[in-house]
Design a protein around this nucleic acid. Sequence first.
DNA 1: TGACAGGGGGTGT
DNA 2: ACACCCCCTGTC
Length: 304
Amino acid sequence: MSALSWSGWHPLPSTALPRRASVLAETLDGGQAFRWHHQSDGTWRGIWGECVAELRLKDHRLSWRAPEETLAATRRELPLYLALEQDYVELADALPGRSDAHLANCLRAFPAFRLLRQPFGETLLGFLCSATKQIVQIKQMLALLAERHGAEIAPGIHRLPTWPELAALSEAELRACLLGFRARYIHQTAAFLAAHPGWLEETERLPYPEAKARLCLLPGVGEKIADCVLLFGAGRLEAFPVDVWIIKTMAARYGLEDWRPDQIAHFGRVHFGPLAGLAQQYLFAYERSVAKSVKALAKPSALI
DNA sequence: TGACAGGGGGTGT
DNA sequence: ACACCCCCTGTC
């Protein structure tokens, strides 16, 4: 087993990227992606497709490096993955922050927050794992899937299995990766995709409503997961996933007590507009930061 | 330090 | 409404 050999650090463009640790953490590990790990030296290590990267924030500037084995692929794919072609400061400014005081708070708390543009198939796999699971548990499932069934793309680092590779696994093998009842959904979805070559790629190219309807045909994929896949894996910023968190948030912050999920979805589309999915992720980021400070206050050490 | 409930970012019936 | 799975977390 040879050791990892890293490239030098390469600076990323200074504009419209996170300059604060908290915003970077929220971007990489706030529930849109599940394969970034915060390391003891303060860097983040992430794996997607055939790429591996470490990200470092130093003097409020972001830079990256990659293992030699994946350097070419990572150099090519990182700008797409980070959606560098999108100016997210501009996009955030297009949200209705001037007429919505709560949203304005969220926007102010996470400057230069952005959505990632993850590989479509991988995003589908990640969110098929997400049902009634928290981020740490989803990360654990995907780490096991990669370790046991994904190719080694750099010494000791495995990518996720592709859908054709997943189709070759038994449901029992999937269950062994702590997937629980999600194993059957993933097994059946893999079988469907294997029987319909090109289906996923076509779906990614379809307009939002058609793409969502098609994803919902897959076993284990309902409206919420379909919207997450399109938002985080296809750059469809109009997708507005409605889960229990957003239902609670909208009730607490917008007075939408006892609204049904479909009513919340309608409100979100109308109120936040064509970038509703971006607004939603800002709301989450904010609620998570509130929950974190409540937790910190509850610790005895904080009372000294 | 270790056992033990309780609940978890959904979907399908 | 409730089952589906089973690991994480908080609590005693």
